[in-house]
Amino acid sequence: MQRSLSIDPDKCTGCLQCEMACSFENEGVFNPAKSRIKVFTFHEEGRFVPYTCTQCDEAWCMQACPVDAIKMNFQTGAMEVSEQVCVGCKVCTIACPFGTVNYNRDTGKVIKCDLCGGDPACATACPTQAITYVDSDATGLEKMRAWAGKTDNAQHAAS
């Protein structure tokens, strides 16, 4: 089964546990500045939104890379950057419409979410299940269930 990250901003409290887990997993330090997932705070609206790569099948970053440093991991479906091959040209950061590929000035390479090889640290760390790792074929299932619950047939039946 292939799985995807599923994000529910309504459940996010802005704690940044995901950013710490991500940077720790990938860089060995607790450092939100180096996290591949980011939580954005819209203070005046009272909203927190986690955001990261959704692993497009026909990934713009992969198409754009002139040295073929970005390849799909067929096990996880993640687009992975090969550190050995990446030349740090940043074309992929321009190509990605969502901004989820970023340059790391410490290494001179780009970084992006690789689903931690199939066990994403952010989803494990999230205390509210705002970030979950679910069956790719059913990414909308929970949302459907929630909306289904709001239909009013039960009330009609009762009245």
């Binding site: 409290t13 802005g14 704690c15 940044l16 546990q17 710490m20 203070h43 609206e45 009272g46 909203r47 927190f48 205390p127 509210t128």
Partner: peptide, 19 residues
């Protein structure tokens, strides 16, 4: 109350965001 909110790294999230 609009939402609860966490401080850095907090998995309790007691903070209040209000209008």
């Amino acid at each position: 109350l609009t939402t609860n909110a966490a401080c850095f790294g907090c998995t309790i999230a007691c903070g209040r965001i209000s209008t």
